[in-house]
Simulated scan of single mutants.
Amino acid sequence: MARILVAGFSHSQGIGKTGKPYDMANLHHLAPIRGWDNERGKGVGVGYESGDRERLPLKKTPELVEKLAAIEYPALLEIITEPHPDDPLRNIVADIKLIRSLAMTENK
């Protein structure tokens, strides 16, 4: 189990351009922006980013999709992973536990 800062959740399903159905879901987690330094220059990274590298595939179940859709993001989550069925060198998120929402909205 690992704790990660999650910016959001996406779920898409439909029929692709080739006629093949698709159904995919991802967590979009926040990772520190990396600085860099080499002989040609230097870059400073401050804060967090969410890009293609920060997408985590989900073992999509109706229960997990429902759990994730109900969370106000950003949020701190504990994730439970298992080997990805198509690539055992990667992990897939099998379940989550909400530690706390970090959303700055007022509940009315």
Rank of each mutant, 00 (worst) to 15 (best):
V65W: 06
P88D: 11
G43Q: 13
I71E: 09
D95A: 04
Y22V: 07
S101M: 00
E82F: 13
L5P: 00
G19F: 11
R100N: 08
D95P: 02
M1A: 09
K17F: 01
D52R: 12
T18G: 09
L64M: 09
Y48V: 13
M1W: 03
M104L: 05
V6N: 00
L30F: 07
E63L: 03
K59I: 04
D86C: 04
F9L: 07
I15K: 15
M1S: 10
S101R: 05
Y48W: 14
A69H: 01
P88G: 05
I79P: 00
G47Q: 13
M24V: 15
L98R: 01
I33W: 10
A103V: 08
G16K: 08
F9E: 02
A31N: 15
R40Q: 13
D52M: 15
L102M: 07
G16I: 04
H11A: 04
W36H: 14
A25H: 10
E78W: 08
A2F: 06
P21Q: 06
H28G: 05
A69M: 11
V93A: 00
W36Q: 13
A69L: 09
T81D: 07
L58R: 05
T105V: 06
R100H: 03
E39F: 11
L98P: 00
G16R: 07
H29K: 13
K67F: 05
E106C: 00
P74G: 05
S101P: 01
V46Y: 04
P88Y: 09
H28A: 08
E63Y: 00
E78C: 09
